[in-house]
């Protein structure tokens, strides 16, 4: 890295540096973010939840979305529905989606979270 020559350069540099601490800032502001929780544990892992989680990560990376965070949790016990994904918007209850595959993950992210449409597949129970 060379010498920063002006305030504008510094602001540009800051933008690229923010990536370094993005995950930590998300942690700081977690209550204000939409949280996608992928339930893992051994059973979730076997059902392919890790791929779903990684898929969310790479999609969010592509979109450059700042207000959505992907979290991982232990298996919820609803093994039959795994891969299980929870979505929690700030200030509201978490809703769950069962048997999530890559297409469903895209739908959850694009339609449900970003566009705010109601979609099929919400499990009729909440995880509190």
């Amino acid at each position: 890295m060379g010498v920063v020559k002006s305030k504008e350069d510094l602001i540009k540099l800051r933008e690229s540096c923010r990536q370094l601490v993005k995950v930590r800032v998300q942690g700081e502001q977690i209550e204000d973010l939409t949280q996608i929780t992928v339930f893992m544990g051994n059973s979730g892992f076997r059902s392919g939840a890790k791929e779903i989680m990684n898929h969310f990560f790479s999609k969010l990376q592509e979109l450059g979305a700042q207000d959505i965070v992907v979290l991982q949790a232990d298996s919820s016990g609803l093994v039959a529905f795994e891969p299980l994904v929870g979505v929690k918007r700030p200030g509201s209850e978490q809703v769950l989606f069962g048997k999530v595959n890559l297409e469903k993950a895209d739908e959850i992210l694009q339609d449900f979270i970003i566009n705010g449409k109601s979609i099929d597949g919400i499990l009729a129970l909440t995880n509190s």
Partner: peptide, 11 residues
């Protein structure tokens, strides 16, 4: 230093 810059360092 880049993590400090990310936190508005030197601005």
């Amino acid at each position: 230093i880049e993590e400090y810059i990310a936190r508005d360092g030197y601005l």
